[in-house]
Design a binder for these strands. Structure first.
Lengths: 230, 230
DNA sequence: ACCTGAACACCGTTCAAGT
DNA sequence: ACCTGAACACCGTTCAAGT
């Protein structure tokens, strides 16, 4: 245990401060995301975590949206893509993949909201896209329709997760939801005949029931709707 | 022009400070929205506009999301609902209403983003809902399917406006978009055969072309997809 | 080239105190 | 009841200056 000389010139502090870089920055962001939620994944909080000033992060990230997209890309690794190659009905397998995607977003409130604005484009996202396209192809959806349809499927899934997770996040959003339900229930038939006729059904079902129907409907629509109208 | 006595006790300043209230607050918010954009519709900026402190606004608004929802509700008055009662193909008229809705959101960047989270529930929103439901009914979409379908249509329209208007808003988001296009173009066929096979088509078309196809596809899907799977 | 201290210009929300 | 000053606890981003 001979004491080494004071380490060649390195002025080390407590835990060896890691060199900055895209990878360590995103890793730190994911850490904060897991422990404190997306609302704490800010440039300033991240800089503190990395023991530097916020300005340093701008060498690697253009803005906060890009940071959030990078975090999302990381989390997309948790989407279960096994149904893509599993046996069984292709529609059911497609729904399973999309429900898994929604689940990942739903587990991390805030992430869905950012996904609508800054789309990721990393390996995990590409794999998800590829998987959905493979299933649509297996189901015989023409390529041109699948190309646009995959976007609709992801958009609906993401938007639903955004709404849903906001509602789970804060009480005000949940109140808002029931206030809308009440408003719809109370809409007078004289001025809003269709809303009155449909009534409760406008807000019925669980999120998953609605999503599963929506996925089936969008897939059926994509399957039967040509790109160029006659 | 006999000079009146100094106004009965009222300690008036420059322009008679308007009494606070939900209506004047929303009106001021709309004014700021028009002149400075949604990113300036903040509690603090609004308080300044109304010549008071931000705390005063919390008597009338629970939070910023509610404020943004109120502003959106105001702007929804600009959606063109005339196609609902016009002659012609119901699908085309439905698409026109939805395109008008997207247009309103698109003209006011940021509004669409907030619409995904805090849904409005005022008269303008109800009228939009009623109009879409009337058209779906005219087209013979079963009520149960229309009830859930209207949500999908509005969600897709809103999400598209959110993406699109973010892209128009700042250059970074636009770069992001072309970066995604490049990533997709360069995806190797060995690992991503479907992406490679479809290629350019994944990002092809104008926003309006894609939206019109999407609306048709969703409507067709809603028309033919029963709520309870066999 | 890479990194950063410090500053600029803001935020939402709460709460004790006033009228 | 309604309103508010002041405070608490933060933000994103830029830029001149350092290494």
């Amino acid at each position: 245990m001979a004491p080494h000389p004071p380490a060649p010139k390195s002025r080390r502090e407590r835990p060896a401060k890691p060199a900055l870089g895209h990878e360590v920055i995103v890793a730190a962001a994911v850490r904060i995301m897991r422990s404190e939620g997306l609302q704490r994944v800010t440039m300033r909080r991240l800089a503190t975590e990395l023991d530097t000033g916020p300005a340093s992060l701008y060498v690697y990230l253009a803005n906060t949206a890009e940071l959030h997209a990078a975090v999302l890309e990381e989390f997309l690794g948790a989407v279960d893509l096994r149904p893509v190659t599993a046996p069984g009905d292709w529609r059911d397998r497609l729904a399973s993949v999309l429900i898994s995607y929604v689940g990942v977003l739903f587990d991390h409130p805030g992430l869905a909201r950012s996904a609508l604005v800054a789309r990721p484009r990393g390996a995990h996202y590409l794999a998800l896209l590829e998987g959905i396209l493979a299933l649509l192809d297996e189901g015989g959806v023409p390529a041109a329709q699948a190309a646009w349809g995959v976007d609709v499927l992801l958009q609906v899934a993401t938007a639903t997760a955004a709404e849903q997770s906001t509602r789970g996040e804060d009480a005000a959003a949940a109140d808002d939801h029931s206030a809308l339900a009440r408003t719809l229930r109370e809409a007078p038939a004289a001025t809003h005949p269709r809303i009155a006729a449909i009534g409760e059904d406008l807000m019925s079902g669980t999120a998953e029931q609605r999503l599963r129907w929506t996925f089936r409907a969008v897939v059926n629509g994509a399957l039967t709707t040509p790109r160029d109208p006659a």
